[in-house]
Amino acid sequence: MPIAIPCATRLTSVSRRCRRACPDCASSISTAITEQLLAKGVARFAIFQEAFRAPAAAVIASDRPFNVHFQRSGQRHVWTRESGPLLSFAERLGIPLPSGCRVGQCESCAVRILQGEVKHLHAAAPDEPDTCLTCQAIPISDLTLDA
Rank of each mutant, 00 (worst) to 15 (best):
A123F: 07
V68N: 01
P126Y: 02
L145C: 02
T34G: 07
Q136I: 15
T34S: 04
H120C: 13
C106G: 13
S73N: 04
R10M: 03
A43V: 14
C109L: 11
R72L: 09
A26N: 10
R64Q: 14
I29T: 02
G84N: 02
R20T: 13
F66L: 01
S62Q: 15
A58L: 10
V78W: 00
E91N: 10
R53V: 07
A123D: 13
A39F: 00
R16G: 06
H122C: 00
A21W: 09
T31D: 05
T131F: 13
T12K: 15
A58I: 05
C135N: 13
N67Y: 11
L133F: 09
I3A: 06
S15Q: 12
I33A: 04
L86P: 00
A125R: 06
A43F: 01
C25R: 00
V42P: 04
S28N: 08
P55Q: 09
R72T: 09
C101S: 08
Q36S: 11
C106Q: 11
G84I: 00
E107D: 02
Q49G: 03
Q75K: 13
Q75T: 09
E117L: 08
P139A: 14
H77G: 03
P96L: 14
R17A: 14
Q105S: 09
I60E: 08
D63T: 14
A137G: 10
A110D: 04
I3R: 10
T134F: 05
E35S: 12
I33K: 01
E50Y: 01
Q115T: 12
S83V: 01
P23Q: 02
E82W: 07
L38P: 03
P55W: 07
P129K: 00
C106R: 14
E117Y: 08
I140H: 01
A137N: 04
I33M: 05
G100R: 13
A147N: 01
L38E: 11
A137F: 08
D63V: 06
Q71W: 07
P139Q: 15
C7P: 03
V78P: 02
V68Q: 02
V103R: 09
C109H: 10
D24P: 04
H77A: 08
I47K: 06
A26F: 08
V68S: 11
R102F: 08
R92N: 15
P2I: 12
D130C: 00
T34W: 00
V59F: 04
F66D: 06
R44G: 03
V68C: 05
L133G: 06
F52L: 15
Q105H: 08
R72W: 07
E128W: 11
A90S: 04
I5S: 13
H120M: 15
E82G: 10
R19L: 14
G100E: 08
W79Y: 01
E91G: 06
W79K: 10
R92C: 11
H120D: 12
L121F: 10
A56Y: 12
A125P: 06
C18Q: 05
A110Y: 10
G84M: 06
A137M: 06
